[in-house]
Design a protein around this nucleic acid. Structure first.
Lengths: 193, 193
DNA sequence: TTGACTTGTCTAACGTTCTTAGGCACACTG
DNA sequence: CAGTGTGCCTAAGAACGTTAGACAAGTCAA
């Protein structure tokens, strides 16, 4: 029973994250995480503020990872290309890490939680840049971002919860959705070319 | 303590639904629902198959109500008008009944649950009709429906969980999103008018 | 009317979860 | 080598879901 000094916080999040991906968010319980780490549940309180704190830590971790994935996808691209790459990275993350992704949403902003706010806001720059490249009016940028974010999130979240009854080709549906939004945006930017 | 004969099933769902709307889905527990009905929790098992069954019943109820709302909104309208009306009804339902709405998603389809499947599928006809009115190619209808549904759901779900950091005018954002999708769809349908 | 049956509630009990309180041992620091 | 703090532990309590079995009230048939 060797003593591990200061090696845990990261382990806790990683373990919980993996558990969420493998068995769903409901399976992430302090008891199970503790058990996987060969530890009693109360011990987790030294690293995390209860179940709520663990969920928050999971959400922050997931948001950061999603953010880096999107930024990496957009790197070296511009405009529509960048947008498509971001959309693709977004869905990839959600499908490969369904548990981690879902923590992002089930953790509502606690009004004054500056850290959560900051991490979430950090995801925006690459998207903003891509939209600017399309020539979107700055006064409408926020709305367009929301539209994209809503669509991406809605799709992957419906996909994750099996909300799409008909099987069909989800890849094609996703691409078409992005096309729809891109075309709609372009149509708005350049009324008559 | 008068005996009520066969008056409960509906009451259980109504009570739970109201509780979900008022305090969030997490507050919907057998204990609390039972307490509000002046009954012990085991008694609920006569009407509902445990907590899972209650959640399922809630989801079915919410899906039905959302479906009727959308159908009512689309009645007497066509094409773009119908689409906008449906979108508006969708968001209205989600914001006035946040708890009920969220049950629709947190209840994943159990593979072979025919009733859930049927109720969810029943929501589609008005949307399909509206899209047909726009001249969408039948081979792409499914994809376009998914795009709309994803965007609508994504938006209201982000709105509900406070996912939109910046305040801004959400009404305007929502309208613009619908416009984007409609324009994108029209652009796809009529490449060059 | 009266007996049997069904239906729906109850109490009792168990297992699981989160959480708090307080004790104890190891590892680092001066 | 003593002192300090970190991080784990056990113990315990509250809340929840769930099952089992008893009991009463309403219903129906003879």
């Amino acid at each position: 029973m060797a003593r591990k000094r200061g090696i845990e916080l990261e382990q806790v999040v990683r373990t919980a994250s993996a558990l969420a991906d493998a068995e769903g968010l409901e399976a992430v319980t302090l008891a199970r995480v503790a058990s996987q780490l060969d530890v009693r549940s109360p011990s987790l309180y030294s690293h995390v503020d209860g179940l709520g704190g663990l969920r928050r830590a999971l959400a922050l971790d997931a948001a950061r990872r999603l953010g880096t994935d999107m930024a990496a996808a957009a790197a070296g691209r511009e405009g529509v290309d960048a947008l498509r790459a971001i959309a693709s990275a977004y869905r990839s993350f959600a499908t490969t890490h369904p548990g981690a992704y879902s923590t992002i949403l089930t953790t509502p902003a606690e009004d004054d939680d500056a850290e959560v706010y900051a991490v979430f806001a950090a995801q925006l720059p690459p998207i903003v840049a891509a939209l600017e490249g399309l020539g979107v009016d700055p006064s409408e940028a926020i709305d367009v971002i929301r539209a994209f974010r809503s669509a991406l999130h809605g799709f992957v979240s419906l996909e994750a919860s099996g909300g799409f009854g008909l099987p069909g080709d989800l890849d094609r549906s996703y691409e078409l959705m992005v096309d729809l939004l891109v075309d709609g945006t372009l149509a708005r930017v350049q009324p008559l070319p």
